[in-house]
Design a protein around this nucleic acid. Structure first.
Lengths: 226, 226, 226, 226
DNA sequence: TGATAAACGAGACGGTACGTCGTGTCTTTGT
DNA sequence: ACAAAGACACGACGTACCGTCTCGTTTATCA
């Protein structure tokens, strides 16, 4: 638990330097890519001594992770605080499709892409970083799906014996894998389809009073989504 | 794939060196991890000049990808040729669970883990490599699922309007993401559950003449699985 | 004397290659300097395999030495055969001054300078090469001075107890050193002065019936030079 | 002399490293010769990073020149400061012979020979280095001869119209050339002879009241030299 | 309010690896 | 069998960063 070296005094820490380092790190990753982003490069661009980086962070990935976290926090502040929940219109399929479409947009945002790919990649190979990445960034997002699915279980839209934490992976993981590994194109149609497949399964349903519509753009009877 | 500068003459290429490089690369990645695996290290361990590596490969990742491919090929030869199809017992759920359990085993094999994580990570950040990784290693595997699902569509086990290439992601991608990003534990129970959720969906089914079993460890009336 | 490896058969040797190698070597040394002249460069420029060079020569310096020798031979053939003797007009001082002025011209010829500097430098550090350089190129030239001085001893212009091989160094070596080491400018005046100093010495001469003229050009009655 | 790129800060320079580099460079040149002395070798032997060499010196020759200069300086300090003048006993010939014999000894000292040959050779081919070599090492030595000859002019031992800077080359350059180019053996007899020839010239002297002795081992009537 | 201790910018340092170039050997493929 | 071609093991090149380590120079509490 104790300090490992000489325990820098966090109260004396220069806020200006911290910000400059975040900015430089994100900018460099976006400009030249993660592997060509160097500690020296960040330091020089931030107008900061190398030691100032080594004093407060353990690795390049560490800097970037915090920078990314900080960026997310800033964005949240800017957008009038972070969303604490997914939309809940009562129509689970529609809500999920809506959110996943937003995610598609986000995944395609270049400002977002470079650093988050870099972090994800590093996390694949560095388990410790990977777990921190997940714990601080990914899991909180996934928790929102868990909440929404729980709510759907309350209304009977989802079977009560389903584990929401696993269930959400049916539509979230395929999107994630396509993004991470370039295993397929990322489109609205695709995510819509994922939701349909996940909710209603792949096997045929026995004839029932109210048949549920299946693919992309819903059936004529469904109400318009906002 | 070959020529980078002035097109070395592939007919004169030393087979001995190529093999030694593959072996050294895989061994080093397994022993010290990908980032600490260096071209110089591979060369020296393989008893080969650095230039011989630079002559035939464009990057460390490139060497590893080919080494990995070669390893897979070797393994196939050893095991009396590569499996061209998934098992097809007529019971789709059972077949998928069986195959996914085998995949779980494979993902946990340390000899396999280090190099494939390294490649996957590199592929996240280097699109070109990523696509090659997918095309040469991943997609052929996924195609087997496509075939099996098509067969299931023929027998009526799967709805005919389902796109098998997307459908397979419902159970494959969650497993992939857990492995890549450490988003959760990887167990037989987990993959079994994925198959069940994917096949039968998350929503309740109307009462029907032949009710299909739903969750992880079967209902009370269901017979024990093998 | 004995073969060192597998004794290449000199009778089968390709004259075309030899010439091409000489030309390429001299051209490269002139163009890029000796250190940047490489065996590979010579081979490729001569349109010749590397082995052809290694088969017949022991080192880069060796190639250049032979190339230089060959060039000298060619030049001699071109100029209606080599001069076998220095001029002998009966006036030793005048003859020496004349020859040294010609040497000054030669030392300044850029075509001559690069390769001969390269050889000289290599010879400073590689005794074996140095001795061969001297024996095949320098000493034959110096021998002409020896002959001329011997002739002067016969006519009484030079004291009979003087060793001509040493005597010649009095005016040749200073020029050589200035050229080799940049210890001073190389001009006609300079070499003329060297001859005068060497012939008549540095100490004052006692008044004598036939006073010999002392400095650069001029007898006693000659007007001041500008 | 210093800055090559972005001007390293000389005040922060490590004295320990500088000394270690000089020592390693001189030792290696003495042991394996100049061409086999490498920057990497110097660095590793000095226990220094390569960059520390590249930071402060432009080339291998540069390192060696400074190392040599430093060695000379050290030697001077050790020997109770550098000699500012040649001996002046009033007998010019004796003084010159004495000094040249000392030079012969020095030229044969192996500790001195390797690095100074290396530098001389490099200077033949690299004019800039050559001129620095001359300016910092050779010319100061030659200046001592100039001074001694001037003094001899004052006493009438040397003709007043003689240019001392040129005159000294009559006995210094022959020795230099024999050493540099292996054009002949280097002995006390040889240098003694050079002095005699240079001072009294090659031509016969008219009979005079006080005949000056001429060659190496004097004539029968001449008194023994000390 | 001035002393003092830290964090800071700067950057030199011992290292490791990079990717390139040249060496000298060896092998393959025409003549 | 020599020659052109060029792959190979080797080793040095000069560069880029690494992470550590001084250096003064701010900065910012405490005496």
């Amino acid at each position: 638990m104790a300090a490992n070296q000489s325990a820098p005094d966090a109260t004396r820490r220069s806020e200006r330097s911290r910000r400059a380092i975040y900015d430089a790190a994100l900018a460099l990753v976006a400009e030249v890519g993660y592997p060509k982003t160097t500690i020296e490069g960040i330091a020089s661009r931030a107008g900061v001594g190398k030691q100032t980086i080594y004093r407060w962070w353990a690795s390049k990935a560490d800097v970037l992770l915090e920078a990314f976290l900080d960026m997310a926090e800033q964005a949240a502040h800017a957008a009038g605080h972070v969303p604490h929940a997914l939309p809940d219109t009562g129509d689970l399929a529609a809500d999920l499709k809506y959110v996943l479409r937003a995610t598609v947009d986000e995944l395609r945002d270049p400002a977002f892409e470079a650093p988050s790919r870099a972090l994800a990649a590093e996390g694949v190979v560095d388990e410790e970083l990977g777990r921190r990445f997940v714990a601080s960034l990914l899991e909180p997002q996934l928790q929102l799906y868990v909440d929404r699915l729980r709510s759907a279980q309350d209304t009977g839209e989802v079977r009560p014996d389903v584990d929401p934490r696993i269930a959400l992976e049916l539509f979230v993981s395929p999107l994630a894998q396509r993004w991470l590994q370039y295993t397929g194109p990322i489109t609205y149609d695709y995510t819509d389809t994922l939701v349909d497949y996940a909710l209603y399964g792949l096997t045929p349903r026995p004839p029932s009073p109210t048949p549920t519509p299946t693919p992309t753009d819903a059936g004529p009877a469904s109400p318009a989504r906002p």
